Simulated scan of single mutants.
Amino acid sequence: MRMEELTWPEFEKLKGSVDTVILPVGSVEAHGRHLPLGTDTFAPLEIAKRVEERLQELGFGVLVAPPVWYGHTFVLNAYPGTVNVGGGAFMAYVREIMREFAVEGFRRIVLLNGHGGNYSPLVLAAEEVAQEFPETEVWLVNWWLDFREDILSVCSSQGHAGEDETSVMLAIRPGLVRMEEARGRKRRSKVRVIKRDVGRELFPDGVNDDPSGATAEKGEAILSVVSEKIARLIAGENDGT
């Protein structure tokens, strides 16, 4: 069920049979010259849709909430089109959204995160909600990180605007991908350097990987395995892989 499509009486009735809500969280930021600014939200939205469909097949109900489009993206703020929300403000905003779901009676909130910069603020927000609402648990699912081994069985590498993300976008929004502009390479730093505009060093042109090998077929394979595993985890059917 998509929350924004329900009336309030329908929502009230749904709460009686559904205890889990999925909240997609992303960002609006540069993803090379070849991917749209909304990549980090498009991906978790699509995964949430597939997870809901798979859970229905498993006989499990879930509510999919409207996404949080803007995130904490200090590093990529060096590039035009990136909208960076300060970590404290972002944490507080997501915390209040989760508080409302806890007050409504949902016992499990799944933060389906699509952006690395969101990680620390989301952990802090989840801890505050868990402390205030002991009957509610928060799951933080970083789709590209938590299922890294599965993704690397499909792609040769991973990275920001890289082969994995580009493949996923080719599968779900191919009209927004400019493969003729898809180029880059992996950059690493031995320590975490925090300074203004560091993104231009770590993410030249907004990329940190080689996206040239991306295909829609690889993207479909990634989406399939990730959504299947998330659905089974929510339904309590962990296959141990």
Rank of each mutant, 00 (worst) to 15 (best):
F147L: 02
V28D: 03
A130Y: 12
E163L: 05
R196G: 04
F42R: 11
I172W: 02
G206R: 05
R187Q: 13
A235F: 06
A235R: 07
E104P: 01
V18C: 15
R178E: 10
W69G: 00
L152N: 11
W139R: 09
I151V: 15
T136E: 08
P80V: 11
E220V: 00
I222E: 12
V225P: 04
E5F: 04
P44K: 03
L111S: 09
R99V: 14
G61H: 15
L6R: 03
A182H: 03
H72S: 13
I151Q: 07
G16R: 13
K13Y: 09
V28F: 12
G81N: 09
E10S: 13
E128K: 02
Y70P: 01
A214G: 02
G59V: 03
L152A: 07
L55P: 05
V94A: 00
P24A: 08
C155R: 00
A130S: 11
G213I: 05
D209E: 12
G86V: 05
L233V: 09
M169H: 10
V75W: 07
L152E: 15
E201R: 03
G71A: 01
H160E: 07
I230Y: 03
I234K: 04
A30E: 15
E46D: 09
V21C: 04
L122A: 05
E52C: 09
V225L: 03
W8S: 08
S167I: 10
Q158M: 15
F60V: 14
A89V: 11
R187L: 13
A30I: 13
G236A: 11
G219L: 05
V75S: 08
L14V: 07
D239P: 14
G175T: 09
V28L: 14
P9D: 09
L152P: 06
S157W: 12
N238C: 12
W139N: 00
T136Q: 10
N84K: 09
N238S: 15
S157C: 09
Y119F: 10
G116E: 00
R108W: 08
V68I: 14
R185E: 14
C155N: 12
E96F: 00
L140K: 04
I22A: 06
I151D: 03
Q158R: 15
L140N: 03
G87A: 15
V25L: 07
L35V: 04
R54M: 13
T215L: 02
E5I: 03
G32Q: 02
L170W: 01
I47E: 04
G87W: 14
R188C: 00
Q131M: 14
L35S: 01
N77G: 07
F60K: 15
S17K: 14
K13V: 11
F42Q: 12
S120T: 00
K15Y: 07
M169F: 11
V85S: 08
